[in-house]
Design a protein around this nucleic acid. Structure first.
Lengths: 215, 215
DNA sequence: CCGGATACTACCAAATTTGGTAGTTGATAT
DNA sequence: ATATCAACTACCAAATTTGGTAGTATCCGG
């Protein structure tokens, strides 16, 4: 199996050296680049064609999270592994949102970094235990609430979905090939089942505690 | 360090035996219970007081995901580690939503199970790489979109907030002590700034990519 | 001192939504 | 076979929303 090509962005010189040493000793990786900032990310990636990018967050010029966005937008196949000291929700979630494939804290066992690189390269999502738990908890809260079943019929769900997208009755009717009055009939049922009395309430309720993925 | 007390729910007899053997050999765990179904989960947990529960999904009577809900509601400190063959989004997310602290596939290396038990017990969130990636991807999509600043003025935010709660213009006006027409003026501005043209779109956009806590 | 943003008020006409009542059809359940 | 439910259509009257146009007042920064 070929060695995994790794590139690192971190403004701590000695840390870059340590990682370089670590990678070299392991024998499974090849360090193809090491930079103290992300000002020239695009070129660096294009030139070195790494499999995995190890990314710090706090760096002069462009911060690591912005860099992740750039990388993910221009090199969708390159995996980014965050490697930082920050464990606050804001940074963690921002990094994930930006497209990071893993998040390892610097205080973890060095061996974990190596394992994480392999894992992220293999389609996994390595995370320091605490980070993983953080993500899981947040994830739990974001998942649709108690699929509270309002017993909406299939048709009613279709109507509600279009309503949430902002379509007026007549538009919903034509999309569903039914009459304006039929749409109204469904809406009345929906209001009844959802215990609401207006479009806005229905939309809010639909989005908040039910289906319909956020865009 | 004390051994971690483990209990397992799985309708596969030979698998329960294998796990029992595995745990015994490792020396770090104590199997305090093994059941083929979850019909009596509450009592089982109360009696054996485990640290970690290994939970299958497909079982006769009560399925594992329902069982997780029961456990999490009654024994908040007990960690549940899913151990199953299912890797479809629906089951995975349902389990996490139910409160599972980890999700390991049965086709993984047995050694991983042991590691996962320790990890979940230590506040981590062990997941098979593929599952972790699944969760991460879903998580990315659910995270609020670029807290885009639509430059709404304070007043406009107030109006929008009330709109999201389902109040009609006149109600908003009286709550804010302003005229119906003033509310309308704000709404026009809001529509302009949000690039929408109806209450429903405004509400959907407000909830989806902005603040206004879900209820 | 003036342009621009924010907050506020007003009126008109048209479009949309809401609540009620009423009925047909087909499938499913008791 | 009879009751129930989902889906569908229809009409009336009232309430609500929307798009336009118009104007006043205050505050802020160049």
């Amino acid at each position: 199996m070929n060695r995994i090509k790794v590139i690192i962005f971190d403004d701590n010189d000695s840390l870059r050296d340590s990682v370089a040493m670590l990678l070299k000793e392991s024998g499974d990786f090849t360090l193809v680049g090491a930079y103290a900032d992300c000002l020239d990310v695009t070129n660096s990636i294009r030139d070195t064609k790494p499999d995995v990018v190890i990314m710090d967050i706090d760096m002069p010029g462009m911060n690591g999270i912005e860099a992740v966005k750039v990388i993910r937008n221009n090199f969708p196949t390159v995996q980014v592994l965050m490697f930082t000291v920050f464990d606050d929700d804001e940074k963690v979630f921002a990094a994930i949102k930006a497209g990071a494939g893993g998040y390892i804290l610097k205080n973890a066992d060095p061996q974990n970094l190596l394992y994480a690189i392999s894992e992220v390269h293999n389609g996994g999502a390595p995370m320091t235990p605490g980070i993983a738990r953080k993500v899981l908890l947040q994830f739990q809260n974001m998942l649709p609430d108690e699929n509270k079943d309002y017993h909406l019929s299939q048709r009613e769900k279709e109507v509600l979905a279009l309503l949430v997208e902002g379509h007026p009755y007549k538009m919903i009717g034509s999309k569903l090939n039914i009459t304006y009055d039929t749409v109204r009939a469904h809406m009345k049922k929906i209001y009844e089942k959802l215990h609401v009395a207006s479009m806005t309430e229905a939309v809010a309720k639909a989005i908040n505690q039910k289906l319909f993925p956020a865009k």
